[in-house]
Amino acid sequence: MFDFLSNYNDPSFLGAFWTTVKLTVFSAVGSLILGTLLAAMRVSPVPLMRGFGAVYVNVVRNIPLTVIIVFTSLGLADIFRVTMGASGDVKLQAFRLALLGFVAYTAAFVCEALRSGINTVPVGQAEAARAIGLSFSQVLRIIVLPQAFRAVIGPLANVLIALTKNTTVAAAIGVAEAAYLMKGMIEKEAQTLLIGAIFAFGFVVLTLPTGLFLGWLSKRLAVKR
């Protein structure tokens, strides 16, 4: 019943999902970093930074992801010649462009999750930190953000699961991840329902443990007050 899966080599079934995993992990790391910086901007005392953070989040999170991903290819690459250091390698270039798009997009959601986490940290924590002479960035790095992160592991798990599934949009610019392969199979094979079920199951295998693990972690690391 599953014989047809082995007829595909470029990408292979596992190879396609491996690309999905790579897109997810790299985008998750990138968006966590960018999202944290954006959150720091949004709570910073400098009005210009606050303004930039707010504009970024409100612009980026309101653009459909497909538009962003297609823009990285048709806009950044074709018009502005941004090749992401892979001008000779079309596949690698598409992968990196998609990665850029996912990081830019997901960072907006990470930022907002984190900002709500910052709001759960009592003002007194930051005041006490300032009172012993920590600088603004030390207060944020040592006292506020660690507590904020622990408070939003649950919401961040949601963002990560959404990101995992969002990586399917990369198929639109030819990144050979799971959804790209699925589309190819559906065109060539008769077992459309089975193919749909297999790929759906593949994503559940990726996201379910993520959600369970982060749920456990969130309870374990919760800050007791």
Binding site: G124, Q125, A128, Q147
Partner: peptide
């Protein structure tokens, strides 16, 4: 920040770093 380091402060709500 330097000056605050020289001025100790104790709050009504303790404000110990919870983590």
């Amino acid at each position: 920040a330097r000056l605050r380091a020289d001025v100790g402060m104790v709050f009504q709500s303790f404000n110990l770093f919870a983590h």
